[in-house]
């Protein structure tokens, strides 16, 4: 019993230490937003790197996810003869939930983990201290560009990913249960609303933010050589996954009700 209490206690302690560390990093970044100062070249390079690195896996994931969604719904659609609903069913779940979550998870594995490994290696080989001695602020120089790149790129990749997932779903709907592409797109365009798409994309922006924050935090905090870097990467992907699911749960109703409120006011 004592052991359990001890474990719970120390988990809570370490959890609050992590949250504190994240808050401090967030504070440091916020401070540097006034006035906004971004190293243009480094930012551009980050965009390129993040985009190039993750586009192939996002496209692969999206195509397969779309296909899986089509296969998945096939059983229901055939059972209920609801061929006209497939486009909407697939589109709704892809754009709102499945797309952003799976793409976010893959992004955290590819870009977030990579970022932690990179920063972590710089940390254990004392390159970050070297930057400091050269009077270069590691936060503005290393962290800010990555932050911006990750947020923007995850939003863009989600848009691209949505598209590919829908194409994947369309192809497999045609192959598996003979729902023609016309029927598919018709039901998709008729029955989904702009908000279904927007919810996903807005959430992706927040996921990008969470992944950036978590991956930079764990990267900058690495200690203890090879084992330390591995452990940091592990922590980064775990925390990102929790962040993604938590934010998803929190944000979806918020965005929906904000949108509804907007509509009631401006009609």
């Amino acid at each position: 019993m004592n052991g359990v209490l001890h474990r719970v206690g120390s988990s809570i302690l370490s959890l609050s230490r992590e949250v504190g560390g994240l808050a401090v990093l967030l504070g440091q970044i916020t401070v540097r937003l006034f006035p906004p100062h971004l190293d243009g070249k480094e930012t551009w390079r980050s965009f390129y790197k993040v985009g190039v690195k993750s586009t192939p896996i996002v496209v692969t994931t999206a195509l397969l996810t779309g296909a899986i969604m089509a296969v998945q719904s096939s059983a229901f659609i055939e059972e209920w003869g609801a061929y006209g609903l497939l486009g909407w069913g697939a589109g709704f779940s892809i754009m709102r939930e499945v797309g952003p979550i799976l793409i976010g998870l893959m992004f955290s594995g590819r870009v977030g983990a990579n970022n932690t490994a990179e920063l972590g290696t710089m940390k254990v080989t004392e390159q970050i201290d070297a930057l400091r001695t050269l009077a270069i602020d590691p936060i503005s120089y290393l962290i800010m560009p990555r932050f911006v790149a990750m947020i923007v790129m995850l939003v863009l990749l989600t848009v691209i990913g949505d598209l590919f997932a829908l194409v994947g779903a369309m192809i497999f709907a045609d192959l598996m249960i003979d729902v023609s592409p016309q029927v598919f797109w018709h039901s998709l365009l008729e029955m989904t609303y702009l908000i279904d798409f927007l919810v996903g994309v807005i959430k992706a922006g927040f996921f990008g933010f969470a992944i950036a924050l978590v991956s930079c935090h764990y990267g900058l905090k690495v200690t203890g050589g090879a084992v330390g870097v591995g452990r940091a990467v592990n922590n980064c992907v775990v925390a990102s996954a929790i962040g993604i699911f938590f934010l998803d749960y929190l944000l979806t109703p918020l965005i929906d009700s904000a949108w509804a409120a907007l509509f009631i006011r401006y009609g």
């Binding site: 994931t61 893959m106 594995g109 983990a113 932690t116 490994a117 990467v233 992907v237």
Partner: peptide
């Protein structure tokens, strides 16, 4: 060196996620 472990770890998460999908 220590980078190698970092890269291996990132490769593991992406490759095994892709394998799962």
């Amino acid at each position: 060196g220590s980078e190698g472990v970092g890269w291996a770890t990132t490769a593991a998460v992406v490759n095994s996620s892709l394998a799962v999908i």
